[in-house]
């Protein structure tokens, strides 16, 4: 799809989000969470381009969320907290990345999973600091020095999420079209060819990994600002699985896929939970199953196909 069409779709999507959030107040929360998760999934998408699946990106999500939660005690400014949390996630991603980019496929996935589970355990273990599974509540937050509370807070965080999503989305779109993006895809098709061309696949993957950590970190920071209560469950392996799940649901073909997937995922979950409170998980599973079996390109694939047909 052309860059222009994608830009237009992205802006239309953003307008739709704002419209929905205005018309249906309770969806504001759901949509903000969806955008935040979509941001983390955008990072997963980068890794998917290289054919690698991380089952541990919840680590960065949770790390940043806890950084924000603890950070509110020191600096309550959201505009400082979010970049700081993203930066922290990026730094940790760099350290871990130097180690994990040497691995491929299942080992890559499992190592990430192991590290996120270690972090999960740490959050539970250092009970005196983190309050374990009870989690910690964010202190008061300000935005440009103004206190954030009530409906203003909801709109501000949603706006912040939209800005970050559009910004990172454009960045990833440009990056994927660059030679670096081609090299990234080369890791998936035949890594040795990159070596022959004098490109270091590890370095290419490391850049993607750090970027994905930063995006997951920003997503985690947004989640913390939205729920205002963070728990270790954010780092559990099922959260990581959920991110991969959303990536596939949305489709890896476009940077819009993750957000489409995240919105579909969150909405399916709340609607399923309302209809069958004790079997929402099965409903979600069936939806995913149908998407994979009948539309392996994800929801984005469906849209793109229709456009081609039209």
């Amino acid at each position: 799809m052309s860059r222009r069409a994608e830009t237009l779709l992205a802006l239309a999507g953003a307008a739709l989000v704002v419209g929905l959030a205005y018309a249906v107040p309770w969806l504001r929360f759901v949509l903000t969470i969806a955008l935040a998760k979509g941001l983390a999934v955008l990072g997963i998408l980068l890794l998917l381009r290289a054919g690698q699946v991380s089952f541990g990106h919840a680590l960065y999500l949770a790390l940043a969320a806890y950084a924000v939660a603890f950070g509110t005690a020191v600096v309550p400014e959201a505009l400082l907290l979010v970049p700081a949390a993203g930066l922290l996630a990026g730094l940790v991603g760099l350290v871990i990345g130097l180690f994990v980019v040497r691995y491929r496929e299942i080992f890559f996935g499992m190592l990430n999973l192991a590290l996120s589970m270690v972090f999960y355990s740490v959050l539970e273990k250092f009970y005196a600091i983190t309050h374990g599974a009870d989690g910690i509540r964010l202190g008061p937050v300000t935005f440009l020095g103004l206190p954030l509370a009530g409906e203003t807070a909801e709109w501000t965080v949603l706006g912040l999420a939209l800005v970050l999503v559009l910004g990172f989305g454009a960045l990833v779109r440009v990056a994927l079209a660059s030679p670096w993006g081609e090299a990234l895809a080369g890791i998936k098709t035949r890594e040795t060819r990159l070596d022959f061309m004098g490109v270091s696949p590890r370095r290419v993957l490391l850049i993607a990994y750090v970027a994905s950590a930063v995006m997951a970190g920003c997503g985690g920071a947004l989640i913390a600002l939205t729920t205002r209560h963070v728990t270790p469950a954010l780092a559990y392996w099922t959260t990581s699985g959920e991110l991969v799940f959303i990536a596939i649901l949305g489709g890896a073909g476009s940077v819009l896929g993750p957000f489409l997937g995240a919105a579909a995922y969150e909405l399916t979950r709340v609607y399923a939970a309302a209809l069958v409170a004790n079997a929402w998980q099965a409903v979600l599973g069936i939806v995913l199953l149908c998407v994979i079996v009948f539309a392996p390109g994800g929801l984005w694939g469906l849209i793109a196909r229709r456009r081609r047909a039209a």
Binding site: T231, L234, A277
Partner: peptide, 20 residues
């Protein structure tokens, strides 16, 4: 509403219960 999925789900459900 189910508490199983965790705090962020419950917080969302709480808002839905009240606002919707």
């Amino acid at each position: 509403v189910d508490e199983g999925p965790g705090v962020d789900h419950v917080v969302g459900e709480y808002r839905r219960l009240v606002q919707n």
